[in-house]
């Protein structure tokens, strides 16, 4: 057996392990250099084939005014966060792209898509296509969390890690302020 083939087999076997470790590293990097924005969630218990149970929720923003979005489909842009407590006060910047000027009163920019009926906004990469976001939750608590989201709005919050380019990732899901599952 040739040395090249030997090395190729070793490399092919190392590839998945290294790639998975790199994926973990990449996600940790994304979270480490981001600012955290806590957003309440409003609200079923479906299951994803690979990742298990999830709840489907939308971010409960405090809109300064209704976003100037298309009635059908969504409108790309960004959310200008005016202040972040207790519920982020926000304004939609229609068509905003990285590098565009932002309003002076914006403390943070989150890139994504706004929709109407009811007005909602989901960051790019988190949007399920309808302005909703999936949160993977423990199997035995999925029903309870779903009910909690309906009965006590604001009890469930998400920590959004927002990078300087406006990209966002979910850092944690909290129940009454306590981090769930991390």
């Amino acid at each position: 057996m040739s040395r090249v083939f030997f090395v190729a087999v070793a490399a092919a076997l190392a590839l998945p392990v290294l790639a998975l470790a790199a994926l973990v590293g990449q996600q940790e990097m994304r979270l480490a250099h981001a600012r955290i924005l806590s957003v309440p969630l409003t609200g079923y218990d479906p299951r994803d084939l690979l990742q298990g149970h999830y709840i489907l929720a939308q971010f409960d923003w405090s809109w300064e005014r209704e976003p100037a979005a298309e009635l059908y489909g969504g409108t790309d842009g960004a959310l200008c966060v005016l202040n972040d407590a207790p519920r982020p006060r926000v304004r939609f910047l229609r068509g905003w792209k990285a590098g565009d000027r932002t309003d002076s009163d914006c403390t943070l920019i989150v890139v994504g898509m706004a929709r109407l009926g009811p007005p909602r906004f989901a960051p790019r990469g988190l949007d399920d296509g309808y302005g909703l976001v999936r949160f993977y939750v423990p199997e035995e608590r999925a029903g309870e969390l779903e009910k909690l989201m309906r009965d006590r709005p604001g009890a469930l919050t998400a920590d959004l890690a927002v990078r300087s380019d406006g990209g966002a990732a979910i850092k944690a899901l909290r129940v009454d302020g306590n981090v769930l599952g991390r």
Binding site: A19, V24, Q27, L50, G125, D127, R134, Y136, A169
Partner: peptide
């Protein structure tokens, strides 16, 4: 799947499956 769950990644299932094939096919 575990990484997607822990980091609440929202990508479509086909992306995970393509990555799986890309990592699994060589070995």
């Amino acid at each position: 799947a575990l990484i997607g769950q822990v980091y609440q990644l929202q990508s479509e299932p086909w992306r995970a499956l393509v990555l799986w094939l890309a990592l699994g096919t060589p070995f």
